[in-house]
Amino acid sequence: MEEYGYEVGKVIGNGSYGTVYEAYYTKQKVHVAVKIISKKKASEDYLNKFLPREIQVMKVSRHKYLINFYQAIETTSRVYMILELAQGGDVLEWIQRYGACSESLAGKWFSQLTLGIAYLHSKGIVHRPCLTPRPSAAGRDLKLENLLLDKRENVKISDFGFAKMVPTTVQIQQKSSQHLMGCFSHLSQTYCGSFAYACPEILLGLPYNPFLSDIWSMGVILYTLVAAHLPFDDTNLKKLLRETQKEVNFPANHPVSQECKNLIHMMLRQAAKRATILDILKDPWVLKFQPERPNHEIQILEVLCVPQSSSTTTSRPAEVAS
């Protein structure tokens, strides 16, 4: 690393296949994060499939609410990923230290998360919170641990180990509902991630819409921000399945506005009725916390949701501006 101009410092995170360090880049005099992946510890599947996909997704993604990717360096024994450093820790640590967020802080963080996910979805990228029983998959999905904070306590979405780029052109089937038009009609069958953040269709082992899977995880995140605990008990799979089929309840000791509750209910419902990222961008509660109405993002995402004739295809729309 010294040959490339990096002075590696303290450990700031640990993963299944590697460790994240704080480092100083002497050439530009900036602090960065270095994710070091051991080829000896990592599975062939991860090294040959998921790691290249993660690097590809991060290379094409530039947004103020995503962790930026700077460089990848590969040696015979390791892969080094140079990333933006988020100096404020992660949102889970914040909740564990301070408890439930005020609704204004939850609104700030969730609106930033919404813009980041809107950007990814507009590019046909899903963060993909999904499910596998393998311990090696833990930590790579859309959840509180993967929402980092910069020094101004702005959200930075991180860890794209199981992110996926959906094919840029999707044939629209005549019987597809408007709710799943365009890229939103793509179904996935890969399961990897955390039980607590997984939508019911994943828990049931069904082919699922990865865009709507992201939305379910966003619902779990928002609930946890305002309640200081997860909405579902993930210690028992059968109980978890039952709970995800019902409308979520809110604790009496943490007052939550009806607008916020309505939004959470829109996200934590069965796939056929679940909100899309476009619905969330337009939601009155989210708009209250946006510095200005995200008209550009809304216009781009409308391309993904507008009904098309069965003879047309949808191409990837222009990117949402960062």
Rank of each mutant, 00 (worst) to 15 (best):
E3T: 15
E3F: 14
Y4V: 08
Y6L: 10
E7K: 09
V8H: 12
G9T: 05
G9V: 06
V11L: 08
I12Y: 11
G18H: 09
G18D: 08
K27V: 11
K27P: 09
Q28H: 09
Q28R: 12
Q28T: 12
K35W: 04
K39W: 07
E44V: 15
K49Q: 09
R53V: 12
E54W: 09
V60L: 14
S61A: 14
R62W: 12
R62F: 13
L66N: 15
Q71A: 12
T75A: 10
Y80G: 15
I82N: 07
L83P: 08
L83Q: 08
L83N: 05
V91W: 04
L92S: 06
E93Y: 11
W94A: 14
C101L: 07
S102M: 05
L105R: 07
G107S: 00
K123Q: 12
G124D: 02
P129M: 03
L131T: 02
T132Y: 03
P135K: 10
A138D: 06
R140S: 15
L144C: 03
E145Q: 07
L147M: 07
K156N: 02
K156F: 04
D159T: 03
F160M: 03
K164E: 11
T168I: 06
T168L: 13
Q171E: 11
Q173K: 15
Q174W: 14
Q174P: 15
K175R: 15
S176V: 14
L180K: 13
C183G: 10
S185V: 04
L187K: 08
Q189A: 08
Y191D: 04
F195L: 06
A198H: 04
C199F: 04
P200L: 05
G205L: 07
N209W: 09
F211K: 00
S213I: 05
D214C: 02
G219R: 03
I221N: 00
A228G: 14
H229L: 10
L230I: 12
P231M: 07
F232V: 13
D234G: 14
K238E: 11
L240N: 14
R242E: 13
E243R: 15
E247T: 14
N249S: 10
A252N: 13
N253R: 13
Q258V: 15
C260V: 01
I264Q: 03
I264V: 06
M266P: 02
M266D: 07
M266S: 09
R269Y: 14
Q270Y: 09
R274H: 06
I277R: 01
I277K: 00
L281A: 01
P294T: 00
P294C: 05
N295C: 07
H296P: 03
I298V: 03
L304C: 01
C305P: 01
C305L: 08
S311L: 14
T312G: 08
S315P: 04
S315Q: 06
E319N: 04
